[in-house]
Design a protein around this nucleic acid. Sequence first.
DNA 1: ACACCAAGCAGCAAT
DNA 2: ATTGCTGTTTGGTGT
Lengths: 245, 245
Amino acid sequence: MELQEFQELVSSATGRGSVLVAFIRCEVTYSGRAETFLPLGDRILILKADGSLLIHQPSGSTPVNYMKAGTQVVLTQENGALTVSARNAHEKAWLTLIVREVHDAIARKLEDGQSIDLAGNERDMSDWIRDNPSCISANFRPVQREEQTDVGFIDVLGHDGDGLVVVECKRVTASLSAVDQLRRYVERVQRIRGTMTVRGVLAAPAITPNAHEMLTSWGFTFCRIDPPKRLERWGKGQARLGQFP
Amino acid sequence: MELQEFQELVSSATGRGSVLVAFIRCEVTYSGRAETFLPLGDRILILKADGSLLIHQPSGSTPVNYMKAGTQVVLTQENGALTVSARNAHEKAWLTLIVREVHDAIARKLEDGQSIDLAGNERDMSDWIRDNPSCISANFRPVQREEQTDVGFIDVLGHDGDGLVVVECKRVTASLSAVDQLRRYVERVQRIRGTMTVRGVLAAPAITPNAHEMLTSWGFTFCRIDPPKRLERWGKGQARLGQFP
DNA sequence: ACACCAAGCAGCAAT
DNA sequence: ATTGCTGTTTGGTGT
Protein backbone atom coordinates (compact mmCIF):
# COMPACT_ATOMS: atom_id res chain seq x y z
CA MET A 1 0.00 0.00 0.00
CA GLU A 2 1.26 3.46 -0.88
CA LEU A 3 2.07 5.84 1.96
CA GLN A 4 -0.29 8.40 0.46
CA GLU A 5 -3.16 5.93 0.42
CA PHE A 6 -2.37 4.94 4.02
CA GLN A 7 -2.32 8.54 5.15
CA GLU A 8 -5.77 9.08 3.65
CA LEU A 9 -7.05 5.89 5.29
CA VAL A 10 -5.80 7.02 8.69
CA SER A 11 -7.26 10.47 8.29
CA SER A 12 -10.68 9.22 7.25
CA ALA A 13 -10.67 6.55 9.96
CA THR A 14 -9.89 8.94 12.81
CA GLY A 15 -12.38 11.47 11.51
CA ARG A 16 -15.11 8.83 11.32
CA GLY A 17 -14.59 7.22 14.74
CA SER A 18 -13.21 4.02 13.25
CA VAL A 19 -10.53 1.71 14.52
CA LEU A 20 -7.47 1.31 12.31
CA VAL A 21 -5.09 -1.64 12.29
CA ALA A 22 -2.03 -1.82 10.07
CA PHE A 23 1.01 -3.96 9.43
CA ILE A 24 3.83 -1.45 8.99
CA ARG A 25 7.60 -1.23 8.82
CA CYS A 26 8.59 1.58 11.18
CA GLU A 27 10.85 2.97 13.87
CA VAL A 28 9.52 4.38 17.12
CA THR A 29 10.69 7.13 19.46
CA TYR A 30 9.01 7.86 22.79
CA SER A 31 9.51 10.48 25.45
CA GLY A 32 7.39 10.75 28.56
CA ARG A 33 7.84 9.00 31.88
CA ALA A 34 10.93 7.46 30.32
CA GLU A 35 12.55 7.60 26.92
CA THR A 36 12.70 4.78 24.41
CA PHE A 37 13.88 4.06 20.91
CA LEU A 38 12.94 1.09 18.75
CA PRO A 39 14.86 0.61 15.46
CA LEU A 40 13.27 -0.27 12.14
CA GLY A 41 11.17 -3.43 11.99
CA ASP A 42 7.74 -4.83 11.14
CA ARG A 43 5.04 -3.94 13.67
CA ILE A 44 1.29 -3.95 14.22
CA LEU A 45 -0.20 -0.50 14.67
CA ILE A 46 -3.58 -0.01 16.31
CA LEU A 47 -5.24 3.37 16.40
CA LYS A 48 -8.57 3.59 18.20
CA ALA A 49 -11.30 6.17 18.02
CA ASP A 50 -10.65 7.37 21.58
CA GLY A 51 -7.05 8.23 20.70
CA SER A 52 -5.42 5.10 22.08
CA LEU A 53 -2.37 4.08 20.07
CA LEU A 54 -0.69 0.69 20.35
CA ILE A 55 2.42 -0.69 18.72
CA HIS A 56 2.96 -4.44 18.92
CA GLN A 57 5.96 -6.45 17.82
CA PRO A 58 5.28 -9.76 16.03
CA SER A 59 5.65 -11.63 19.33
CA GLY A 60 4.81 -10.96 22.94
CA SER A 61 1.54 -10.15 24.63
CA THR A 62 2.28 -6.60 25.74
CA PRO A 63 2.69 -3.59 23.44
CA VAL A 64 6.24 -2.40 22.87
CA ASN A 65 5.01 1.21 22.80
CA TYR A 66 1.65 2.78 23.50
CA MET A 67 -0.18 6.00 24.11
CA LYS A 68 -3.30 6.22 26.23
CA ALA A 69 -6.71 7.49 25.25
CA GLY A 70 -6.79 11.19 24.49
CA THR A 71 -3.72 11.19 22.31
CA GLN A 72 -3.73 13.51 19.32
CA VAL A 73 -2.18 12.30 16.10
CA VAL A 74 -0.76 14.33 13.22
CA LEU A 75 0.53 12.89 9.96
CA THR A 76 3.26 14.45 7.84
CA GLN A 77 5.00 13.14 4.79
CA GLU A 78 8.43 13.99 3.50
CA ASN A 79 11.37 12.27 1.77
CA GLY A 80 9.44 9.09 1.12
CA ALA A 81 8.55 8.49 4.76
CA LEU A 82 5.36 9.09 6.70
CA THR A 83 5.76 10.52 10.19
CA VAL A 84 3.05 9.89 12.78
CA SER A 85 3.41 12.43 15.58
CA ALA A 86 1.38 11.52 18.64
CA ARG A 87 1.03 13.80 21.64
CA ASN A 88 -0.77 13.33 24.92
CA ALA A 89 -0.74 16.68 26.70
CA HIS A 90 -2.23 15.33 29.91
CA GLU A 91 0.37 12.57 30.22
CA LYS A 92 3.17 14.85 28.99
CA ALA A 93 4.12 12.19 26.50
CA TRP A 94 5.24 12.27 22.89
CA LEU A 95 5.63 9.46 20.43
CA THR A 96 6.97 9.59 16.91
CA LEU A 97 6.46 6.83 14.40
CA ILE A 98 8.45 6.91 11.19
CA VAL A 99 6.63 4.67 8.75
CA ARG A 100 8.83 3.34 5.92
CA GLU A 101 6.40 0.85 4.47
CA VAL A 102 2.76 -0.19 4.83
CA HIS A 103 2.20 -3.89 4.24
CA ASP A 104 -1.53 -3.92 4.92
CA ALA A 105 -4.16 -1.86 6.69
CA ILE A 106 -7.84 -2.09 7.63
CA ALA A 107 -10.22 0.36 9.25
CA ARG A 108 -13.78 0.03 10.45
CA LYS A 109 -16.29 1.47 12.87
CA LEU A 110 -16.89 -1.10 15.61
CA GLU A 111 -19.97 -1.32 17.84
CA ASP A 112 -19.49 -2.58 21.38
CA GLY A 113 -21.52 -1.38 24.32
CA GLN A 114 -20.66 -4.35 26.53
CA SER A 115 -18.39 -4.42 29.55
CA ILE A 116 -16.63 -7.39 31.04
CA ASP A 117 -17.97 -9.30 34.04
CA LEU A 118 -15.22 -10.57 36.34
CA ALA A 119 -15.28 -12.90 39.34
CA GLY A 120 -12.52 -13.93 41.68
CA ASN A 121 -11.05 -10.62 42.74
CA GLU A 122 -10.04 -9.44 46.19
CA ARG A 123 -13.38 -7.77 46.77
CA ASP A 124 -15.10 -11.14 46.33
CA MET A 125 -12.66 -12.53 48.87
CA SER A 126 -13.35 -9.92 51.55
CA ASP A 127 -17.08 -10.33 50.91
CA TRP A 128 -16.73 -14.06 51.46
CA ILE A 129 -14.82 -13.56 54.73
CA ARG A 130 -17.51 -11.20 55.93
CA ASP A 131 -20.16 -13.85 55.18
CA ASN A 132 -18.04 -16.67 56.65
CA PRO A 133 -16.31 -15.04 59.64
CA SER A 134 -15.52 -18.37 61.31
CA CYS A 135 -12.75 -18.86 58.75
CA ILE A 136 -10.73 -16.27 60.67
CA SER A 137 -11.49 -17.58 64.15
CA ALA A 138 -14.43 -19.11 66.02
CA ASN A 139 -15.43 -15.83 67.66
CA PHE A 140 -14.58 -13.46 64.85
CA ARG A 141 -17.28 -10.90 64.04
CA PRO A 142 -16.69 -8.41 61.25
CA VAL A 143 -17.38 -4.77 62.02
CA GLN A 144 -16.79 -3.02 58.75
CA ARG A 145 -15.34 -3.74 55.40
CA GLU A 146 -12.69 -1.53 53.83
CA GLU A 147 -12.42 0.98 56.66
CA GLN A 148 -10.53 4.01 55.44
CA THR A 149 -7.61 5.38 57.44
CA ASP A 150 -4.99 7.92 56.46
CA VAL A 151 -2.66 5.01 55.77
CA GLY A 152 -5.01 3.24 53.39
CA PHE A 153 -8.02 0.92 53.24
CA ILE A 154 -8.48 -1.92 55.68
CA ASP A 155 -9.99 -4.91 53.88
CA VAL A 156 -11.88 -6.36 56.87
CA LEU A 157 -12.04 -5.03 60.42
CA GLY A 158 -13.66 -7.01 63.21
CA HIS A 159 -13.39 -8.21 66.80
CA ASP A 160 -13.19 -11.61 68.43
CA GLY A 161 -13.94 -10.88 72.07
CA ASP A 162 -10.37 -10.15 73.18
CA GLY A 163 -10.03 -7.14 70.94
CA LEU A 164 -9.92 -5.84 67.41
CA VAL A 165 -8.80 -7.86 64.41
CA VAL A 166 -7.41 -6.38 61.20
CA VAL A 167 -7.61 -8.67 58.18
CA GLU A 168 -5.62 -8.07 55.00
CA CYS A 169 -6.62 -10.19 51.98
CA LYS A 170 -4.49 -11.22 49.03
CA ARG A 171 -5.89 -13.26 46.17
CA VAL A 172 -2.45 -14.62 45.29
CA THR A 173 0.52 -15.76 47.35
CA ALA A 174 1.15 -13.15 50.05
CA SER A 175 4.56 -11.50 49.91
CA LEU A 176 6.61 -9.22 52.17
CA SER A 177 4.74 -6.15 51.01
CA ALA A 178 1.47 -7.70 52.21
CA VAL A 179 2.98 -8.02 55.69
CA ASP A 180 4.16 -4.40 55.45
CA GLN A 181 0.64 -3.35 54.62
CA LEU A 182 -0.92 -5.34 57.47
CA ARG A 183 1.61 -3.97 59.90
CA ARG A 184 0.87 -0.42 58.81
CA TYR A 185 -2.87 -0.91 59.36
CA VAL A 186 -2.48 -2.66 62.73
CA GLU A 187 -0.23 0.11 64.02
CA ARG A 188 -2.65 2.74 62.87
CA VAL A 189 -5.65 1.03 64.48
CA GLN A 190 -3.67 0.66 67.70
CA ARG A 191 -2.96 4.38 67.68
CA ILE A 192 -6.52 5.39 66.81
CA ARG A 193 -8.23 3.09 69.29
CA GLY A 194 -5.69 3.53 72.08
CA THR A 195 -3.91 0.68 73.84
CA MET A 196 -6.50 -1.94 72.92
CA THR A 197 -5.04 -5.23 71.75
CA VAL A 198 -5.16 -5.47 67.97
CA ARG A 199 -4.59 -8.74 66.15
CA GLY A 200 -3.36 -8.87 62.58
CA VAL A 201 -4.46 -11.60 60.20
CA LEU A 202 -3.21 -12.14 56.67
CA ALA A 203 -5.72 -14.10 54.58
CA ALA A 204 -4.42 -15.56 51.32
CA PRO A 205 -4.21 -18.88 49.45
CA ALA A 206 -0.48 -19.06 50.32
CA ILE A 207 2.41 -17.07 51.78
CA THR A 208 6.11 -17.00 50.95
CA PRO A 209 8.54 -18.31 53.60
CA ASN A 210 10.19 -14.95 54.25
CA ALA A 211 6.83 -13.23 54.49
CA HIS A 212 5.60 -15.87 56.94
CA GLU A 213 8.68 -15.42 59.09
CA MET A 214 8.20 -11.66 59.16
CA LEU A 215 4.48 -12.15 59.86
CA THR A 216 5.03 -14.34 62.92
CA SER A 217 7.89 -12.14 64.16
CA TRP A 218 5.34 -9.34 64.36
CA GLY A 219 2.85 -11.56 66.18
CA PHE A 220 0.45 -11.77 63.26
CA THR A 221 -1.16 -14.91 61.94
CA PHE A 222 -1.74 -16.42 58.54
CA CYS A 223 -5.12 -17.73 57.48
CA ARG A 224 -5.27 -19.83 54.33
CA ILE A 225 -8.23 -18.89 52.16
CA ASP A 226 -8.75 -19.56 48.47
CA PRO A 227 -10.28 -16.74 46.47
CA PRO A 228 -13.87 -17.54 45.50
CA LYS A 229 -14.37 -17.85 41.76
CA ARG A 230 -18.09 -17.61 41.71
CA LEU A 231 -19.22 -17.60 38.19
CA GLU A 232 -21.33 -20.63 39.05
CA ARG A 233 -24.11 -18.59 37.52
CA TRP A 234 -22.77 -19.98 34.26
CA GLY A 235 -23.85 -23.38 35.45
CA LYS A 236 -22.55 -26.14 33.28
CA GLY A 237 -20.73 -23.71 31.04
CA GLN A 238 -17.96 -23.52 33.59
CA ALA A 239 -17.48 -27.27 33.63
CA ARG A 240 -17.29 -27.32 29.88
CA LEU A 241 -14.66 -24.61 29.93
CA GLY A 242 -12.04 -26.80 31.56
CA GLN A 243 -12.41 -29.30 28.79
CA PHE A 244 -10.60 -28.89 25.54
CA PRO A 245 -11.54 -30.35 22.18
CA MET B 1 -16.13 -12.53 5.27
CA GLU B 2 -17.53 -16.03 5.61
CA LEU B 3 -16.72 -17.98 8.78
CA GLN B 4 -15.35 -20.81 6.65
CA GLU B 5 -12.97 -18.48 4.86
CA PHE B 6 -11.89 -16.98 8.18
CA GLN B 7 -11.23 -20.40 9.67
CA GLU B 8 -8.98 -21.25 6.73
CA LEU B 9 -7.17 -17.91 7.05
CA VAL B 10 -6.50 -18.50 10.75
CA SER B 11 -5.31 -22.05 10.13
CA SER B 12 -2.93 -21.08 7.38
CA ALA B 13 -1.67 -18.06 9.34
CA THR B 14 -0.84 -20.00 12.49
CA GLY B 15 0.76 -22.77 10.50
CA ARG B 16 2.92 -20.29 8.61
CA GLY B 17 4.14 -18.22 11.56
CA SER B 18 2.09 -15.20 10.54
CA VAL B 19 0.32 -12.62 12.66
CA LEU B 20 -3.44 -12.43 12.24
CA VAL B 21 -5.63 -9.42 13.01
CA ALA B 22 -9.39 -9.43 12.61
CA PHE B 23 -12.44 -7.30 13.30
CA ILE B 24 -14.99 -9.73 14.66
CA ARG B 25 -18.33 -9.83 16.44
CA CYS B 26 -17.89 -12.26 19.32
CA GLU B 27 -18.45 -13.19 22.94
CA VAL B 28 -15.62 -14.19 25.24
CA THR B 29 -15.34 -16.55 28.19
CA TYR B 30 -12.18 -16.83 30.27
CA SER B 31 -11.18 -19.05 33.17
CA GLY B 32 -7.77 -18.95 34.79
CA ARG B 33 -6.54 -16.72 37.56
CA ALA B 34 -10.06 -15.31 37.58
CA GLU B 35 -13.20 -15.89 35.53
CA THR B 36 -14.71 -13.45 33.09
CA PHE B 37 -17.52 -13.19 30.60
CA LEU B 38 -17.91 -10.59 27.89
CA PRO B 39 -21.21 -10.48 25.97
CA LEU B 40 -21.54 -10.12 22.22
CA GLY B 41 -19.89 -7.11 20.62
CA ASP B 42 -17.41 -5.96 17.97
CA ARG B 43 -13.78 -6.58 18.93
CA ILE B 44 -10.28 -6.64 17.53
CA LEU B 45 -8.63 -10.05 17.65
CA ILE B 46 -4.87 -10.43 17.43
CA LEU B 47 -3.25 -13.82 17.13
CA LYS B 48 0.54 -13.90 17.05
CA ALA B 49 2.89 -16.61 15.88
CA ASP B 50 4.15 -17.29 19.41
CA GLY B 51 0.64 -18.10 20.57
CA SER B 52 -0.20 -14.75 22.13
CA LEU B 53 -3.88 -13.91 21.80
CA LEU B 54 -5.31 -10.45 22.41
CA ILE B 55 -8.88 -9.19 22.39
CA HIS B 56 -9.38 -5.43 22.31
CA GLN B 57 -12.59 -3.50 22.60
CA PRO B 58 -13.03 -0.49 20.28
CA SER B 59 -11.76 1.81 23.01
CA GLY B 60 -9.20 1.63 25.77
CA SER B 61 -5.49 0.98 25.69
CA THR B 62 -5.44 -2.39 27.49
CA PRO B 63 -6.85 -5.66 26.15
CA VAL B 64 -10.17 -6.78 27.62
CA ASN B 65 -9.03 -10.41 27.42
CA TYR B 66 -5.70 -12.00 26.58
CA MET B 67 -3.67 -15.17 26.64
CA LYS B 68 0.10 -15.17 26.90
CA ALA B 69 2.61 -16.72 24.52
CA GLY B 70 2.45 -20.50 24.35
CA THR B 71 -1.31 -20.68 24.01
CA GLN B 72 -2.70 -23.41 21.76
CA VAL B 73 -5.69 -22.60 19.61
CA VAL B 74 -8.28 -24.96 18.13
CA LEU B 75 -11.09 -23.92 15.80
CA THR B 76 -14.45 -25.65 15.56
CA GLN B 77 -17.55 -24.71 13.63
CA GLU B 78 -21.13 -25.60 14.39
CA ASN B 79 -24.58 -24.05 14.15
CA GLY B 80 -23.36 -21.07 12.18
CA ALA B 81 -20.79 -19.99 14.76
CA LEU B 82 -17.05 -20.43 14.90
CA THR B 83 -15.59 -21.35 18.28
CA VAL B 84 -11.98 -20.46 19.06
CA SER B 85 -10.78 -22.60 21.97
CA ALA B 86 -7.54 -21.34 23.46
CA ARG B 87 -5.65 -23.21 26.15
CA ASN B 88 -2.47 -22.32 28.00
CA ALA B 89 -1.45 -25.37 30.00
CA HIS B 90 1.40 -23.63 31.80
CA GLU B 91 -0.81 -20.79 32.99
CA LYS B 92 -3.75 -23.13 33.65
CA ALA B 93 -5.94 -20.80 31.63
CA TRP B 94 -8.70 -21.34 29.11
CA LEU B 95 -10.41 -18.89 26.83
CA THR B 96 -13.32 -19.47 24.50
CA LEU B 97 -14.24 -17.10 21.73
CA ILE B 98 -17.56 -17.54 19.99
CA VAL B 99 -17.28 -15.72 16.69
CA ARG B 100 -20.65 -14.72 15.19
CA GLU B 101 -19.37 -12.55 12.40
CA VAL B 102 -16.08 -11.59 10.76
CA HIS B 103 -16.04 -8.03 9.46
CA ASP B 104 -12.48 -8.05 8.17
CA ALA B 105 -9.23 -9.93 8.66
CA ILE B 106 -5.61 -9.71 7.59
CA ALA B 107 -2.63 -12.01 8.12
CA ARG B 108 1.05 -11.66 7.34
CA LYS B 109 4.48 -12.84 8.32
CA LEU B 110 6.27 -9.94 10.03
CA GLU B 111 10.04 -9.52 10.37
CA ASP B 112 11.35 -7.77 13.45
CA GLY B 113 14.61 -8.64 15.16
CA GLN B 114 14.87 -5.37 17.07
CA SER B 115 14.41 -4.79 20.77
CA ILE B 116 13.52 -1.57 22.54
CA ASP B 117 16.10 0.66 24.20
CA LEU B 118 14.87 2.38 27.37
CA ALA B 119 16.37 5.04 29.62
CA GLY B 120 15.13 6.62 32.82
CA ASN B 121 14.54 3.69 35.14
CA GLU B 122 15.33 3.26 38.81
CA ARG B 123 18.61 1.55 38.08
CA ASP B 124 19.81 4.71 36.34
CA MET B 125 18.82 6.63 39.47
CA SER B 126 20.76 4.45 41.93
CA ASP B 127 23.75 4.57 39.57
CA TRP B 128 23.56 8.35 39.61
CA ILE B 129 23.39 8.50 43.41
CA ARG B 130 26.39 6.22 43.63
CA ASP B 131 28.31 8.57 41.34
CA ASN B 132 27.06 11.69 43.14
CA PRO B 133 26.97 10.67 46.82
CA SER B 134 26.95 14.25 48.08
CA CYS B 135 23.30 14.47 47.05
CA ILE B 136 22.50 12.32 50.10
CA SER B 137 24.74 14.12 52.57
CA ALA B 138 28.15 15.80 52.60
CA ASN B 139 29.92 12.80 54.13
CA PHE B 140 27.94 10.03 52.45
CA ARG B 141 30.06 7.28 50.89
CA PRO B 142 28.34 4.39 49.12
CA VAL B 143 29.46 0.91 50.04
CA GLN B 144 27.49 -1.30 47.73
CA ARG B 145 24.63 -1.02 45.36
CA GLU B 146 21.60 -3.28 45.62
CA GLU B 147 22.82 -5.35 48.55
CA GLN B 148 20.70 -8.45 48.78
CA THR B 149 19.03 -9.39 52.05
CA ASP B 150 16.34 -11.96 52.73
CA VAL B 151 13.83 -9.14 52.72
CA GLY B 152 14.78 -7.79 49.30
CA PHE B 153 17.35 -5.66 47.49
CA ILE B 154 18.75 -2.50 49.05
CA ASP B 155 19.14 0.13 46.33
CA VAL B 156 22.13 1.92 47.85
CA LEU B 157 23.96 1.13 51.08
CA GLY B 158 26.63 3.45 52.48
CA HIS B 159 27.98 5.21 55.53
CA ASP B 160 28.44 8.85 56.51
CA GLY B 161 30.80 8.69 59.47
CA ASP B 162 28.18 8.27 62.18
CA GLY B 163 26.94 4.94 60.87
CA LEU B 164 25.28 3.10 58.05
CA VAL B 165 22.83 4.67 55.64
CA VAL B 166 20.18 2.77 53.71
CA VAL B 167 18.87 4.57 50.63
CA GLU B 168 15.67 3.57 48.87
CA CYS B 169 15.09 5.17 45.45
CA LYS B 170 11.81 5.86 43.71
CA ARG B 171 11.71 7.39 40.26
CA VAL B 172 8.19 8.70 40.84
CA THR B 173 6.45 10.28 43.84
CA ALA B 174 7.22 8.12 46.88
CA SER B 175 4.19 6.60 48.59
CA LEU B 176 3.47 4.77 51.84
CA SER B 177 4.70 1.49 50.43
CA ALA B 178 8.11 3.07 49.74
CA VAL B 179 8.35 3.98 53.44
CA ASP B 180 7.32 0.41 54.31
CA GLN B 181 10.10 -0.90 52.13
CA LEU B 182 12.72 1.44 53.59
CA ARG B 183 11.67 0.53 57.11
CA ARG B 184 11.95 -3.17 56.31
CA TYR B 185 15.49 -2.71 54.99
CA VAL B 186 16.64 -0.51 57.88
CA GLU B 187 15.33 -3.01 60.41
CA ARG B 188 17.07 -5.83 58.63
CA VAL B 189 20.41 -4.00 58.45
CA GLN B 190 20.10 -3.14 62.14
CA ARG B 191 19.61 -6.79 62.95
CA ILE B 192 22.39 -8.04 60.66
CA ARG B 193 24.96 -5.49 61.76
CA GLY B 194 23.98 -5.45 65.43
CA THR B 195 22.98 -2.33 67.35
CA MET B 196 24.80 0.06 65.05
CA THR B 197 22.90 3.23 64.23
CA VAL B 198 21.32 2.96 60.80
CA ARG B 199 19.87 5.96 58.98
CA GLY B 200 17.12 5.59 56.41
CA VAL B 201 16.91 7.89 53.40
CA LEU B 202 14.15 7.94 50.81
CA ALA B 203 15.36 9.46 47.54
CA ALA B 204 12.66 10.47 45.06
CA PRO B 205 11.50 13.48 43.05
CA ALA B 206 8.59 13.94 45.49
CA ILE B 207 6.75 12.31 48.38
CA THR B 208 3.08 12.27 49.36
CA PRO B 209 2.12 14.08 52.58
CA ASN B 210 1.05 10.93 54.43
CA ALA B 211 4.20 9.12 53.37
CA HIS B 212 6.33 12.03 54.53
CA GLU B 213 4.61 12.05 57.89
CA MET B 214 5.18 8.33 58.31
CA LEU B 215 8.77 8.74 57.14
CA THR B 216 9.64 11.37 59.74
CA SER B 217 7.75 9.52 62.46
CA TRP B 218 10.20 6.67 61.89
CA GLY B 219 13.16 9.03 62.02
CA PHE B 220 13.95 8.72 58.34
CA THR B 221 14.69 11.56 55.96
CA PHE B 222 13.57 12.52 52.48
CA CYS B 223 16.05 13.50 49.80
CA ARG B 224 14.65 15.11 46.67
CA ILE B 225 16.30 13.76 43.55
CA ASP B 226 15.05 13.91 39.98
CA PRO B 227 15.47 10.73 37.95
CA PRO B 228 18.04 11.06 35.19
CA LYS B 229 16.55 10.62 31.73
CA ARG B 230 19.77 10.27 29.88
CA LEU B 231 19.15 9.38 26.31
CA GLU B 232 21.38 12.33 25.43
CA ARG B 233 23.10 9.77 23.26
CA TRP B 234 20.37 10.69 20.79
CA GLY B 235 21.72 14.21 20.71
CA LYS B 236 19.39 16.71 19.14
CA GLY B 237 16.74 14.09 18.49
CA GLN B 238 15.57 14.46 22.04
CA ALA B 239 15.07 18.19 21.73
CA ARG B 240 13.09 17.74 18.56
CA LEU B 241 10.85 15.20 20.25
CA GLY B 242 9.31 17.71 22.62
CA GLN B 243 8.20 19.81 19.70
CA PHE B 244 4.98 19.08 17.91
CA PRO B 245 4.02 20.10 14.39
C1' DA C 1 10.95 -23.14 39.87
C1' DC C 2 10.15 -19.58 43.37
C1' DA C 3 10.82 -15.02 45.48
C1' DC C 4 11.07 -10.35 45.20
C1' DC C 5 10.53 -5.94 42.85
C1' DA C 6 10.11 -2.24 39.20
C1' DA C 7 6.84 -0.59 35.81
C1' DG C 8 6.47 4.85 30.57
C1' DC C 9 2.91 -0.13 35.23
C1' DA C 10 -3.08 0.65 34.22
C1' DG C 11 -7.39 1.45 36.12
C1' DC C 12 -10.49 2.43 39.86
C1' DA C 13 -12.36 4.56 43.85
C1' DA C 14 -12.30 7.96 47.42
C1' DT C 15 -10.71 12.34 49.04
C1' DA D 1 -6.01 16.30 40.63
C1' DT D 2 -3.86 13.51 44.28
C1' DT D 3 -3.59 9.45 47.13
C1' DG D 4 -3.72 4.61 47.73
C1' DC D 5 -4.42 0.01 46.05
C1' DT D 6 -5.78 -4.03 43.08
C1' DG D 7 -4.46 -6.46 39.00
C1' DT D 8 -6.07 -12.68 34.90
C1' DT D 9 -1.06 -7.02 36.77
C1' DT D 10 3.52 -7.87 33.42
C1' DG D 11 8.29 -8.61 33.04
C1' DG D 12 12.96 -9.03 34.85
C1' DT D 13 16.49 -10.65 37.95
C1' DG D 14 18.44 -13.37 41.34
C1' DT D 15 18.42 -17.52 44.22
